[in-house]
Design a protein around this nucleic acid. Structure first.
Lengths: 142, 142
DNA sequence: GTTACTGTACTAAGCACTTAGTACAGCGAT
DNA sequence: ATCGCTGTACTAAGTGCTTAGTACAGTAAC
């Protein structure tokens, strides 16, 4: 079981989000073959149906390509990978700004909070005890 | 109907979040009487039961105080109001930082994104056409 | 061919969220 | 007392998410 899930949102959406992160960060390399639906279900402690539902989203986005009988593969479209990564970062930042504006905070106050949070919680990496280190490829973010 | 809701998360939680924002920003003033469960349900286009479930959360947090037969009132505990507001802002920022770190971005890249988002989407206020302007009281955020 | 894997597609059950509807007790104004 | 409001508490139905279980077609290794 890799991590756990919020009870608030559908698991298949949280799964899709984690898969997206693994793909755009290069944790799963372009062209690489993904683990099977059944193996991923075991790894994450959920039902294979739930994994399949999550993967259906990634296929609609073109990040994963199903091969019907031989497995599922990560896209090699580097442009798509970069733009998806950028979009995820922008969305996260827009939501954050929206929430802070709803609280009546301005840009300067947001920046100050960001500085505090980014220095305090500094857990450099969240490695699973039993999992080997993957290439990761820093990618120098945009 | 004031705004709409994500299909992803329970409505009662989204409602509770909006109510919290209205309280800590002073849009609903301390000591003020809230609209009734039935009126809020009409205003937001949901079932009274859903509103009550949202309000139950605010009561557990001490932000709203039910008076059994005469209505529900906003707390006058200014310390609680300020600490709640601070906490909401910190939580939003921590989630944002967590998502960006998962994408492999560092603090500087996050700050750059923040600057972009905060200058582009500048919709100063989201007023409802039929609703009057409320005091709002800038509050100078912490 | 046989075996073992792959993606894909169903069913039935359990659970949480939402809704409509109903009901009761207490307060205030008439 | 009566009327109209308040918070509160329940039921029953519908819907969506999750799960276990089963099944089928295609590929690869043997």
């Amino acid at each position: 079981m890799t991590g756990s899930f919020d009870a608030d949102r559908p698991i298949y959406q949280q799964l899709a989000h984690r898969f997206r992160e693994r793909i755009v960060t290069g944790y799963w390399q372009p062209g690489e073959r993904m683990a099977s639906v059944r193996d991923l279900a075991l790894e994450y402690g959920v039902n294979p149906n739930t994994v399949q539902r999550a993967l259906a989203e990634l296929e609609r986005e073109g990040l994963a390509i199903p091969e019907r009988t031989s497995g599922r593969f990560i896209t090699e479209d580097e442009v798509l990978l970069r733009s998806t990564k950028r979009q995820l970062a922008v969305e996260a930042t827009e939501e954050w700004a929206k929430r802070l504006r709803a609280l009546g905070l301005n840009r300067a106050e947001g920046a100050q909070l960001a500085a505090v949070v980014w220095t305090d919680n500094h857990e450099p990496n969240g490695h699973e005890p039993g999992k080997p280190d993957k290439p990761d490829k820093p990618d120098k973010g945009e």
